[in-house]
């Protein structure tokens, strides 16, 4: 057994966790932007916008994230292109998040009562204005708790990046486990670090559910 102190292991894991955080944030931000576009697509009146958006969301939700990651990581090799692990992970997680976020947000928009849009239209607002000033402000409140909840899913899903060789928290754990030959402690610590990243988000999500009561 290589002599690693507990402190050294924890230090290395925290360093690895930075990449987990960075990957999660990029997936959330990029996925959020794409998700917003997708969501707007799904509520469009035009079929040729709506159907592809719905189709994409369905496809992503109906397949394992790991397969999506493999397709993006290994697939381009067919065309003689190499995709680095971090980029493949980032792209896969972005696409994956965008679909789930779009679905969450779409649900919130549809949950705003039809009468709200009709009232706005009756006041001579255009569809886009009704969406912007009346529907979205209400939908955002409803969407916040599940969105925070989904951030937990994103953080957890970044662990898959280790499988294509991106050295984030999980992969750091694998390496340490191999050199220390102490997987019990190392993986236990890895789990604790993930828990420390995710649990606050879960609490925030739960808290928001009570704060953002829809009727207020």
């Amino acid at each position: 057994m290589t002599d690693f102190t507990l402190q050294q292991i924890i230090y290395a894991l925290v360093l690895g966790a930075r990449w987990t955080v960075l990957l999660s944030l990029s997936a959330f931000i990029l996925g959020g932007i794409l998700g917003l576009v997708l969501m707007l697509g799904t509520i469009s009146q035009r079929k040729w916008v709506k159907l592809p958006a719905l189709g994409f969301i369905w496809l992503v939700q109906a397949t394992p994230l790991l397969m999506q990651l493999f397709l993006i990581f290994f697939g381009p090799a067919l065309f003689g292109k190499d995709v680095p692990a971090w980029m493949a992970a980032c792209i896969a997680l972005t696409l994956w998040s965008s679909a789930y976020l779009a679905e969450i947000w779409r649900g919130s928009v549809l949950a705003v009562q039809k009468g709200q849009t009709e009232a706005a239209l009756s006041l001579a607002m255009l569809r886009g204005q009704a969406l912007r000033y009346v529907v979205l402000p209400q939908a955002v409140r409803m969407a916040l708790p599940p969105t925070a909840g989904f951030m937990v899913q994103i953080v957890k899903s970044t662990a898959l990046a280790s499988i294509v060789g991106f050295t984030e928290l999980m992969k750091t754990g694998n390496i340490l486990s191999n050199v220390t030959l102490d997987p019990f402690v190392v993986y236990g610590l890895v789990a604790i670090v993930y828990f420390c990243l995710c649990y606050p988000l879960s609490l925030v999500s739960r808290k928001m559910e009570t704060v953002f009561d829809v009727t207020r």
């Binding site: 937990v152 957890k156 662990a159 999980m170 754990g173 997987p183 993986y187 890895v190 993930y194």
Partner: peptide
């Protein structure tokens, strides 16, 4: 609040 992968490992 932890990934399935770490649970498995």
């Amino acid at each position: 609040n932890t990934p399935f992968l770490i649970q498995l490992f």
